[in-house]
Design a protein around this nucleic acid. Structure first.
Length: 430
RNA sequence: GGAGAGGUGGCCGAGUGGUCGAAGGCGCAGCACUGGAAAUGCUGUAUAGGGGCAACUCUAUCGAGGGUUCGAAUCCCUCCCUCUCCGCCA
């Protein structure tokens, strides 16, 4: 959520920032709402002050010996009642205005960082770096490199058809070495990040509406999450949601920042509007596993933290010998809560393309304001900054490993770093 | 799911209708004392919003929301949460 003070004092800055995202917003309505709410508050609090004075007078008169039912006291009571009703009216109006204003503000995305490159579409994203040698060409036999779902099918480690029976399309069941590899990857990633100072978290994956609002998924993106019918609970679309709310409403003590968390969770997304895309394999599922990195940090440190978090995510790819590139998203491609984002794209040898495997964002104080997360900074309480990034999406990591490590005989050679976790250096057909 | 107890400031804890934003203690900060420290003493120490250049001031907040009242931390209703016991269960 954007700062209401900014709306009052420098609305042009909001208009400009959002126009960099390609949005044309008219803030006049919101400004007027804010102004009217403030005027009402002024009026109301003056009336309340008057009412408080009267209340006190009644007490004093009675103490001084006035008859509680007498004329003098009755006049004051009548006046008190009149004020009370007037205050109630004003309060109702004020609440209405404030709620409207809040709804409007909650619907506005974060302002892009000054460092975020301008752009009109994802075509304007900027490649920052590349790492590793993408596997190109064909198998030794001359046959083309296969895509991960073909390899997985050949190995019998993924069952898509039966998953439809269990749930519906866009769900998978991992079997045998596939299930084992998924588990190995999760452990590998968690161990790696905790060794670098992240605190491991295993949060609830059903989250309430306040949590989704805090991190920015609500109110605008309700259609992206699965909802429980009988409770105010949703299946979390990313661990970013529960971790943001881990400290929702808190004022963190001086010296506790930065807080660095790593969480493995299943993630659930409805993927509305992506019919026909990535229908095969592990790329786009309603349920997938992800290891998420998350920082709560001092505003002055968030820029550096963003680099560090991204580097930490890249480290996983490097440890797994997976070639990737880092893309800085332009203003047009930025997510709702982000002010600046690096996407990491892993090389999929079979598909011969780079695919997103991590999205590392700094949200500035946007989520902190929504979720009310502050810290003490030399006697003052101020909003902190939040950052998040995948470290990594587990299913897509498996896809990349299958495609990069595929052999002519259908087996898959795994990177060394995984051997202690997987228990073998390759996957072969049982 | 059944029965009971309870939710007050950073923490502990008083407060059952009238200047209560809330005693007292702990903690914390500043000052004094000291060669330095401990101990001691004094002072200060919530959050949010509005108004004011400022000193300052007004309002709200004692789990949340509603109600009674001129006036509610205190009385009534609803909800949420925590704890204890019983039942059930991975």
């Amino acid at each position: 959520m954007l700062d209401q003070r900014l709306l009052r004092d420098n609305p042009a800055q909001i208009v400009e920032g959002l126009s960099r995202r390609g949005m044309d917003v008219d803030l006049e309505g919101s400004q007027q709402l804010a102004q009217r709410a403030r005027d009402l508050e002024q009026q109301r609090s003056e009336l309340q002050a008057e009412g408080n004075r009267i209340g006190r007078q009644v007490g004093e008169r009675i103490k001084a010996g006035a008859t509680p039912g007498g004329e003098e006291v009755k006049a004051l009571r009548d006046e008190g009642n009149r004020i009370k009703h007037r205050v109630a009216e004003l309060e109702e109006q004020e609440r209405g205005l404030e709620q409207q204003l809040r709804e409007q503000l909650l619907g506005l995305p974060n302002l892009p960082s000054p460092l975020c490159p301008d752009g009109r579409s994802e075509a304007d994203n900027v490649e920052v770096k590349r790492w590793g040698e993408p596997r190109l060409g064909t198998l030794a036999s001359g046959k083309p490199l296969q895509e991960h779902w073909q390899i997985a099918e050949g190995l019998g480690i993924v069952d898509t058809e039966r998953s439809v029976r269990i749930a519906q399309s866009r769900f998978v069941t991992l079997l045998g070495q596939g299930a084992r590899l998924e588990r190995a990857l999760i452990s590998f990633m968690l161990d790696r990040h905790t060794a670098r100072g992240y605190t491991e978290v295993l949060p609830p994956i059903l989250v309430n509406s306040a949590s989704l609002t805090g991190s920015g998924q609500l109110p605008k993106f309700a259609e992206e999450s699965f909802r429980c019918a009988d409770d105010d609970l949703w299946l979390t679309p990313t661990a970013e949601v529960p971790i943001t709310s881990l400290h929702r409403g808190e004022v963190l003590a001086e010296g506790t920042l930065p807080l660095k968390y790593v969480a493995y969770t299943p993630c659930f997304r409805r993927e509305a509007g992506s019919y026909g895309r990535d229908t095969r394999g592990l790329i786009r599922l309603h349920q997938f596993n992800k290891v998420e990195l998350y920082w709560f940090c001092h505003p002055q440190e968030s820029e550096q933290a963003h680099e560090q978090l991204t580097t930490d995510a890249e480290g996983v790819l490097e440890a797994l010998d997976l070639p990737y590139r880092r893309i800085e998203l332009c203003t047009a491609d930025l997510g709702f809560s982000a002010s600046r984002t690096y996407d990491l794209e892993v090389w999929l040898a079979g598909a011969a393309t780079y695919r997103e495997i991590s999205s590392c964002s700094t949200c500035g104080d946007f989520q902190a304001r929504r979720a009310g997360i502050r810290f003490r900074d030399g006697g003052k309480t101020r909003l902190l900054h939040t950052l998040n990034g995948s470290g990594l999406a587990v299913g897509r990591t498996m896809a990349a490993l299958l495609e990069s490590g595929q052999q002519d005989d259908g087996s898959v050679v795994l990177p060394e770093a995984l051997v202690p976790y997987f228990g073998a250096d390759r996957i072969v057909r049982d």
